[in-house]
Design a protein around this nucleic acid. Structure first.
Lengths: 112, 112
DNA sequence: CACCTCAGTATCGTTGCAGAAACCGAGGGG
DNA sequence: CCCCTCGGTTTCTGCAACGATACTGAGGTG
């Protein structure tokens, strides 16, 4: 992704289905595993675990397990993850502003 | 992608492997199919065709076929595509600035 | 004893992206 | 006669992501 720049899709995985959503769920503070699962409608625990592990590996989030029964695990944005919130907002703003035009372009393409 | 916002990955496909690179190849002017294939090292004609068709469908690029032998097809950024250059630069800047930290985070994760 | 919570695992199947390689048609060159 | 160009298309194949469902451990509660 982004010629001449560092690749984003493959190594950093921002462009996948869940990473950006997870960052936005965490941007207002730390959350527990089950508190992430609810707003991320449709995600399965397996995929959420995989995504969080990959993000932890890349230094985007921190994972803190509080021992005890029932278990409690808290995920929080690391500084690196926080630094992504701005760029993500930029893309999000573009999306909000231009989605209608994309959809109308697609509609007129379909009916050619 | 981007909770609460319009989805970007699935319907608009910005987060895929080639869309962003193609936009960056086109941002300085129109190019022909074969002029795109060279700088996008590793792309196969099939994937390039698919990507360009999807982008045309979404109104990001325009395709102009000049009849004749040999055929000549010119791709150009539509206004909608141009409006993506800015946000893309933002992500690109983040990538350049933060890739080293991601890699070092990954390295220290590997050696835990 | 049975059941609840939480944070995952395990196993399986599906889907779609991506790539390699071959092929196309029509004209021009050697 | 064969090969080259250009902008693709077609076929085959692998792989990674995604997803559904079931299950775990360990203690507290009824």
């Amino acid at each position: 992704m982004f010629t001449g720049c560092a690749p984003v899709t493959a190594p950093i995985r921002i462009g996948d289905k869940w990473t950006a959503k997870i960052i936005r769920c965490l941007q207002d503070g730390p959350r527990r595993f089950s508190e992430l699962k609810v707003p991320l409608t449709g995600i399965t625990p397996k995929v959420l675990t995989e995504s969080l592990r990959a993000m932890e590996r890349d230094g985007l989030v921190t994972r803190t397990a509080h021992p005890g029964i029932p278990p409690k695990v808290v995920y929080e944005l690391a500084p690196l993850g926080h630094s992504l919130v701005g760029p993500l907002d930029t893309m999000c703003a573009w999306s909000r502003a231009n989605l209608p035009q994309v959809l109308s372009a697609r509609e007129s393409y379909e009916s050619r």
